[in-house]
Amino acid sequence: MKKGTTNILIVGVGGQGVLLASEILSEVAKSSDLDTKKSEVHGMSQRGGVVTSHVRFGEKVFSPLIPNGEADAVLAFELAEGLRWSHQCKSSGITIVNNQKIIPTIVSTGKFSYPDSPADKIKKKNPGARIINAFELAKELGNSRLVNTIMLGVLSQFLDLEEEKWIEVIQRMAPKGTGELNKKGFLEGRKFEN
């Protein structure tokens, strides 16, 4: 592994804005003059499936996929997904999880159950994990779709990327008319403590 490559794994459920979040992160890395790669699989994601996006940046990046257990950060938009992917986080890395449950239809058939106390299980594996009420915070700010920029704000605390670059990219890439609101969401996340 080339030294100096930063690996961010962003995970969630189709429709949560995982892809836009990873798009924003990649553009911020690119505008910081870093070699940047990003990989995800499209297709079934719109239909309620698991969505994962790998973002890697540094001096020179080869594979677009993060090797097992080498994520510097796992950013999970959903609790069960946080649990599913937290093992990919380095021991020196950070796991950031949105405290929200999205329960798939399959649970209603009785064959599968949603994991009990997923946040505790994540913390057991990654004691430093941050569990964020991003969905609640987004609603307080006036738009439940701000979850992804709030989460990016929290992530930004752990990355050496300039705040102005984040804000420039967020305002450029946010859906029309939501630039200011997304900037606000990002800054809320950026100052989040727990």
Binding site: V13, M44, Q46, R47, G48, G49, V50, P67, N68, G69, E70, A80, E81, L83, R84, S86, H87, C89, P104, T105, I106, V107, F112, S113, Y114, P115, K121, K125
Partner: peptide
């Protein structure tokens, strides 16, 4: 050094009709 944590088995999310 790459000792990977055990993976939790979490419920599947098969794609469904919208």
């Amino acid at each position: 050094s790459a000792s990977v944590e055990t993976k939790d088995t979490v419920l599947p999310r098969p794609p469904v009709l919208c």
